[in-house]
Design a protein around this nucleic acid. Sequence first.
DNA 1: CACACCTACTCAACAAATTGAGTATCCCAT
DNA 2: ATGGGATACTCAATTTGTTGAGTAGGTGTG
Lengths: 187, 187
Amino acid sequence: MSLKYAVLAALLEGEASGYELSKVFDVSLANFWPATPQQLYRELERLAQDGLIEARVVQQERRPNKRLFTLTDAGRGELTAFAAEPTRRPTALRDELLIKIQAMDGTDPEVTRALVEERMSWARGKLARYERVRDRLLDGRTEEEYLREADRIGPYLTLMGGIAFESENVRWCERVLAILGRRVPLS
Amino acid sequence: MSLKYAVLAALLEGEASGYELSKVFDVSLANFWPATPQQLYRELERLAQDGLIEARVVQQERRPNKRLFTLTDAGRGELTAFAAEPTRRPTALRDELLIKIQAMDGTDPEVTRALVEERMSWARGKLARYERVRDRLLDGRTEEEYLREADRIGPYLTLMGGIAFESENVRWCERVLAILGRRVPLS
DNA sequence: CACACCTACTCAACAAATTGAGTATCCCAT
DNA sequence: ATGGGATACTCAATTTGTTGAGTAGGTGTG
């Protein structure tokens, strides 16, 4: 149900094709509403049928044609209505690694170390990507200036959330590695 | 696919009924693998059929009978094998509130404030519950002592993750509220 | 000049998650 | 004495999410 609004929110940034959205959902929105390309195409179809978005086909020369989608007034309306509704479920984190950590006693600690290290470097990479998005948003201004001047601060606040989340993730990994290291000194 | 292992991991704590598990999945495991009671009952059925857990029916006097499930050796084996496998997808955070924040420009800032405040007090509540679980685990010992003595540290490390996650959540809410407050001074 | 990867999707099948109702007993407070 | 909540589930329908294959031209790399 919420993917619908995630897509509408993504289209606030302007016209986009399904393919472009699938990229966006991989970098910025991926932080709080992951979706596969297939889900997006299906959702776009539905939204277009419901008149919340409009499609126009763009003929292209040396690549397949694409359909660009734009928010309609109706879509914009539904989105702002949604944004004012009370939130039903709060954060839901689904993390396979944490299941493995929960069940780690009884497995080789070195294997667990490796899993945590992999996660840590992944989180660092994501953090770096977020920081780049941040720099592009700020565009030389300080955060203060940006928040005063910008007409849309929503995307900045969610990005801030993503950055906070991933750096906490990295810190957690570091702590876990420290603890594992104390338990099983490197031989 | 992972719910299976989440359930097996939960049963490491000992025998439990579906009903009891649905409580556990609401407090501790909810942090990294949410599941509804219906999902759990179905999963338990499947796991019992596959011989990974065993059920025994306990007759009760003044309440409905219950089925208590225990890990079998096969179940324990599958779980430890899983715990050593590389993790496919990393963290996926799904947060409806962040969609609303992303789309907040164009809605009444006071409404957004209220949404964030609600989330903050919810996160504080969750944090308090985690802290209580932590105190019960530590049982008077310091973290150092616990980590040296305890034979299972997995649950402590995941709990640490939950605490880190929720306190970061609270901090994010505070920052957002501060920014909203500057933009829209309370009249 | 072969091979992999990028754009830009569609189709189909399946697995997992959500929602809502239904059953039946007991305890506690108003 | 009546209503609400807790225990302890089951059944069914629907919506979401995932996986894998297929199409088809274009670009870049060794």
